[in-house]
Write a protein that binds this DNA or RNA. Structure first.
Lengths: 338, 338
DNA sequence: TTGTAGGCGTTATCAT
DNA sequence: ATGATAACGCCTACAA
């Protein structure tokens, strides 16, 4: 027995009456034609009896790798990241890898050092939707890095796996324009992240060329209450009232709906509201939100695949995954102009 | 340089012109009066220059411990577990520990073996709100274990940190009874877990003794759509319509609200709805939900403290943390009887 | 005040 | 077909 109280491969060897090397061979599954069937069986029996589990620390030390990836996410709460994890973990498991989550403490929280607080030994890092300045602690460390949902790298940088966010926004705006809307308010997340920068830019760009369109933008933090206040400002502001609140996320859309109700406006008859992300929240609300569905699980899977390729030294091609507009009941033609 | 391409303590020693032992002493912070200031400074400079990071695998192997705890949760999506993690991570950090998350694949998913798939080497396990049968893979392994939100152990078993769930339900029922409600429907989560069993039992127990009270129970899966269907059944069923839907969670309450609206019932004028957990969802909905707030972060913190005590061999006292009813706008007196 | 040496549990290379 | 042996990088008696 080892110092930790757990049986070691030595113990297994002794019980089975063989050498440590043989145990390693058998349990490592690479004994075909090197160890007799009988011996192999004996080894497995002994290991079972003792409840032997290989010591991961020792294995990592010997192998120089841990077969573990670190997934850095900005917030656990968001169901989006849970799905990213699921996809990444699936692909990882298929390759004998594990995934350890590190919820990056945005501002407050534990040390901003993934390698200190997520103490696990790591072969590579997948960073998702990180703020521009939150990368500092990750960029160095010299570990292979894949970025999800981030500014495409200038070649030579970390490979990226992105969503077609711009296309998603385009689908939303065209849907709304098609319904007849011309007076837009954009409830924009006040977060310095590639994905949100793209959203804001694309809304403006798409609406810029259209005749008679007015666009007002209100920025707010990424929570319901802030969004309610922002929507309130947009609806109460000077000039003709917007007929639609285009929101950067479902959470913001929830706030927008509350603001509308607070003003006695019915959604969608008096005011249309659109979301983004297509979280469970989108269908928890009433009316259900028109939103843009993101293939989050596939993003996670593609990210893990990219990291695996990186670790194997293969070339990695940046990917962009398609998104899809889901029309529900929160959007409708604008009310007749007074 | 090591085989992994990363600088080792040997490299630091060479650059600083000292021995490995000295490096270890200095970087381990235990050199007071054993190494001269000058040498210590030299070591730190060298380590900085090289970007030295100690190899965790080697350290774990030598020390026989990893200073890492595994937190097993049934679902990442739930904001409740994100908060558990936050609390656990905070206490862990204060003691030089790390926390690795393992989202237990409920039924489907990767291997049900935390020690295989969450490959990190682990000193102990904290399991939160696990289904009764999901413990099998965890119970063995011989690792110190703390259970959160689970059946109190029969002494000698794993220590538990629990919420005063029964008291929370009691607060809700009394609030509703106080408003004048007598015809109850309980929208219960169809999940075989201590916390939900207690909720169901307590609702029944609290309402049992009260004159003229009718209770109907509808079970459903833990999602909005299932809850909507269950609420629909409860409202459409035979006999006089319930005046209140008491829900096992905010997610279920969201579904209940949708069912109400679908039937043209106003919340709370025609029908009261109460939630549980007090998630962000509770205030994202309109009207905002009356719910029961759970000190999730403190549960996580207490769980980690208990595990730390366990590892230190100290006695651990089971804890039960208080919960608090939050009255919002989804509950009101019942409509006058026809 | 600093250096030497041994071993943690594993895998891989070489003998036998 | 199997066994002895040498690392992997770190920590810590003990020696100098």
């Amino acid at each position: 027995m080892s110092v930790t109280g757990r049986p070691t491969s030595r113990d297994v060897a002794r019980v089975a009456g063989v050498s440590q090397a043989t145990v390693s061979l058998v349990l490592g599954g690479k004994w075909r034609g090197r160890v007799s069937e009988r011996t192999a069986a004996a080894v497995r029996t002994a290991a079972d009896e003792l409840g032997y589990r290989p010591n991961l620390a020792a294995r990592s030390l010997r192998l120089g790798q841990t077969r573990t990836a670190l997934l850095v996410v900005p917030a656990l709460t968001h169901e989006y990241f849970a799905r990213i994890y699921t996809g990444a973990a699936r692909v990882a498991a298929e390759h004998g890898f594990g995934v350890v989550l590190y919820p990056s403490p945005a501002g407050i929280g534990p040390a901003p050092d993934p390698f200190g607080s997520a103490r696990a030994a790591i072969d590579g890092v997948i960073a998702s939707s990180m703020a521009a300045d939150a990368l500092s602690g990750i960029g160095d460390g010299g570990l292979p890095l894949v970025m999800l949902d981030s500014e495409p790298a200038p070649a030579g940088g970390a490979p990226t796996v992105n969503l077609a966010v711009a296309d998603g926004i385009r689908q939303v705006t065209r849907h709304l324009l098609g319904l007849g809307h011309r007076r837009f308010a954009h409830i924009a997340a006040d977060v310095d992240t590639w994905t949100f920068r793209v959203r804001t830019e694309t809304v403006a760009a798409e609406l810029a060329g259209v005749d008679g369109v007015r666009l007002r933008t209100e920025r707010c933090a990424l929570d319901v209450e802030a969004a309610r206040a922002a929507a309130r400002r947009a609806l109460g502001g000077p000039g003709p009232r917007p007929t639609v609140l285009l929101c950067d996320g479902d959470v913001l859309a929830a706030g927008a709906c509350k603001a509308a109700r607070g003003l006695g406006l019915r959604v969608p008859q008096d005011l249309s509201v659109s979301g983004f992300d297509d979280l469970a929240l989108a269908t928890a609300l009433d009316p259900e939100l028109t939103s843009v569905a993101l293939p989050a699980e596939e993003v996670g899977a593609a990210g893990m695949s990219a990291l695996l390729a990186l670790l194997a030294g293969s070339p990695v091609v940046p990917a962009e995954l398609p998104v899809e507009l889901v029309v529900r009941s929160s959007t409708a033609p604008p009310p007749p102009s007074p």
